[in-house]
């Protein structure tokens, strides 16, 4: 019986290798080819790259090209419109160079988005794996915490948490991560439940692998593509959350600029400085839009069911 079921396998392999090898393409090759034809995603990637480079070079650009400091106030040049001599994008209500503040603000927004997403995923992945793999009362408890946190409107919870901790960028990341990990848990829990009874996991268990080894060496790599695909929309969502909090005055505090808190008092200067209300919000919008488009594009490209 066992001999019979084993014999076809090598035969199949012979037949397979006999076919011309040129036709077979890996998923990645196919995905990259699809991606090369998806112009919308490519444009979004280019725009995001430019924004990231500008944000990374914020210090150098402000010092060498704009020759100013993002926090240096100057009452004599308040609310200059964009295009004024010495201030490409004008100045804000305290006479600070608007372009310099945008560059530095972008650096903080991106940094919070990226580090916040990584921390969120770290907690989410760990809890999701544990809940999905062990099940039982551990799953019940984790599920209880997840549903509880999810039923509090997130802005209330974020606002509440941010009143407790001092408002530094690091604490803001902590606040966002402490509250935002439930999405990752849901994602990983479902995947883990789907994978935990598959043959390769049973085989690993039969060979005496520990629960932790099965979770992190056998199950986790199989969910990696999903995790990576959720990065883009995760970062976008966190940039939105951070800018909303900072706009409301509960996030990063001035004088440190972020795209969100730069809009905080824009309403008071509608008539004299409308540029204060437009540019930084537009940058948030464009950045988040690019991240969402890239995320969608990658998902389509790497979807094994999509056709060429």
């Amino acid at each position: 019986m066992s001999e019979k079921s084993l014999t076809p396998a090598p035969l199949l392999r012979v037949i397979k290798t006999a076919e011309p090898a040129a036709k077979s393409q890996s998923l990645t090759t196919k995905a990259l080819r699809r991606l090369r034809r998806d112009y919308l995603t490519l444009v979004a990637m280019a725009v995001l790259l430019v924004i990231t480079l500008l944000a990374l070079g914020a210090d150098v650009i402000t010092r060498e090209i704009l020759m100013t400091d993002p926090e240096a106030t100057n009452p004599s040049v308040r609310l200059l419109p964009p295009g004024s001599p010495g201030h490409v994008l004008g100045t804000d209500d305290l006479g600070r160079d608007y372009a310099a503040r945008l560059l530095h603000g972008g650096r903080i927004s991106l940094a919070i988005g990226i580090s916040g997403t990584l921390l969120t995923l770290l907690i989410g992945v760990a809890t999701g794996l544990i809940a999905g793999y062990f099940g039982g009362w551990i799953d019940d408890i984790i599920n209880w915490v997840v549903t509880t946190l999810d039923s509090i409107p997130s802005i209330y919870a974020l606002l509440l948490l941010s009143t407790i901790l001092t408002r530094s960028p690091v604490n803001l990341v902590l606040v966002i991560a402490l509250f935002g990990w439930t999405g990752g848990t849901r994602l990983l829990r479902g995947q883990t439940i789907a994978l935990r009874d598959q043959e390769f996991v049973i085989a690993a268990r039969a060979m005496g692998a520990s629960a932790w080894r099965i979770m992190f060496v056998h199950i986790l790599p199989n969910t990696l593509s999903l995790i990576l695909l959720s990065l883009g929309s995760g970062i976008g969502g966190l940039i939105l959350a951070e800018s909303t909090l900072s706009f409301l005055g509960f996030g990063i505090q001035p004088p440190t600029p972020t795209w969100g808190n730069m809009l905080g008092n824009a309403q008071q200067f509608f008539s004299r400085g409308p540029h204060m209300a437009t540019i930084s919000g537009l940058l948030i919008f464009v950045t988040v839009l690019c991240l969402f488009i890239i995320s969608d594009g990658l998902r389509d490209a790497f979807d094994p069911q999509s056709k060429d």
Partner: peptide, 21 residues
Amino acid sequence: VALTALPIFWFAIMLLLLFAV
């Protein structure tokens, strides 16, 4: 997609700037 990426506080400010101011 654009509406999901739109920071609504900025959208509100833009509407105010255009239609109210």
